[in-house]
């Protein structure tokens, strides 16, 4: 342990105390750096092994992976990501559309409306939403929310059926994309609200006072001095939420009816997603089937990676802007 002299000398520039008994420094520094590198290696390994284990199944595919709708890797060896990727993106965007306005409202409530004494405990209450496990939301969704949404879904379909999202004949309501998206929205709400709350709280007090001193109402003050400042933070929070929604598995696996078609009819029982399909199909999959699921997981990994990296870049840029502005 005490023999790694080379790294110690290499690191002596940054390790200020040059002590004669610092023979643990090299190994310790090596361990700490190594741990960080392990983390990078894991990220790389995820990509490498998903690709390598997906290749045999992709080669056995008798259809086009990117355009095929059906998922029959076990028997006829025809499978494609099209319907699943569509369901993933649409259900997540729908969840985002539901969650973002509510989350921004919640964030404003905690940062600018709630009595100061209550703000922290109430914020904690919203954070608790994130502590409920996904499978519990799934259970709640199938047993409570799905029946609850049946009536409103049928009403929307009957009265506003001309609107493409609400259209559809036959069975209306039940295990629909809307039900899944509402559950997803509840699950991503805490993260969007938490990040938005932080950026709203960071809005410069002196600008808020300037707005009030001009005779702004509370809402006008927020519109002038808080929202413009917080916008990049809210955008990246929403994107992080989008990434979460796309990768969310068990709740939608219980709710989505596992159909393989592309339709915008969110009130009919047609819905699926990459993650839900992995959870539902893994148990009964053979070798090709599992390879196919790994391939779909790779697609999910890439999509969420892109969304998350974009979100992080927006946040990091804002941090720098904030630092130079301060």
């Amino acid at each position: 342990m005490a023999t790694n002299v080379r790294t110690r000398d290499g690191g002596s520039a940054t390790s200020r105390p040059a002590s004669r008994r610092s023979h643990g420094e090299g190994p310790f520094r090596f361990l700490a750096t190594g741990a960080g590198v392990v983390l990078l290696a894991i990220m790389a390994a995820i990509a490498v092994f998903l690709v390598s284990e997906a290749i045999p199944a992709l080669q056995a595919n008798k259809s086009s992976f990117l355009t095929e709708l059906t998922w029959e890797p076990n028997s006829s060896r025809e499978f494609g990501i099209a319907a699943l990727a569509f369901g993933t993106v649409v259900s997540s965007l729908l969840a985002l559309a539901i969650a973002t306005p509510v989350a921004v409202g919640v964030a404003l409530f905690i940062s600018h409306y709630a009595p100061r004494r209550l703000a922290a405990p109430l914020g904690y209450l919203v954070d608790l939403l994130a502590a409920v496990p996904s499978v519990v939301y799934g259970l709640w969704g199938v047993t409570f929310l799905v029946p609850l949404l049946r009536g409103p879904s049928q009403w929307l379909n009957a009265n506003l059926g001309w609107f493409p999202l609400f259209s559809g004949e036959g069975i209306v309501g039940g295990k629909t994309m809307l039900a899944g998206s509402v559950v997803l929205a509840i699950m991503i709400l805490p993260i969007i609200a938490a990040i938005s709350r932080e950026v709203f709280l960071q809005a410069p007090k002196m600008n808020e006072e300037a707005a009030l001193a001009l005779g702004a109402t509370r809402w006008e003050m927020i519109r002038i001095a808080v929202l413009p400042f917080g916008r990049p933070g809210v955008i990246s929070a929403a994107m992080l939420g989008l990434g979460r929604a796309m990768g969310e598995t068990i709740a939608v696996a219980l709710i989505f009816p596992a159909t393989f078609d592309i339709t915008f009819q969110i009130l009919t029982p047609h819905a699926n997603s990459i993650a839900a399909n992995i959870a539902n199909a893994f148990g009964e999959a053979n070798d090709i089937g599992r390879g196919a699921l790994i391939a779909s997981g790779l697609v999910l990994f890439i999509i969420t990676l892109l969304v998350n990296m974009a979100a992080r870049m927006i946040i990091n840029r804002r941090k720098e802007y904030g630092r130079t502005g301060a």
């Binding site: 002196m206 300037a210 001193a213 002038i224």
Partner: peptide, 26 residues
């Protein structure tokens, strides 16, 4: 506050607005 204006210790123009918009804000 609309009747009685205020100028603060540290200059606090709205950072997201132009010079014109700052003056027009009130």
């Amino acid at each position: 506050r609309r009747m009685i204006g205020m100028v603060f210790q540290r200059p606090n123009p709205f950072p997201t607005m132009s010079i014109y918009e700052n003056v027009a804000a009130g």
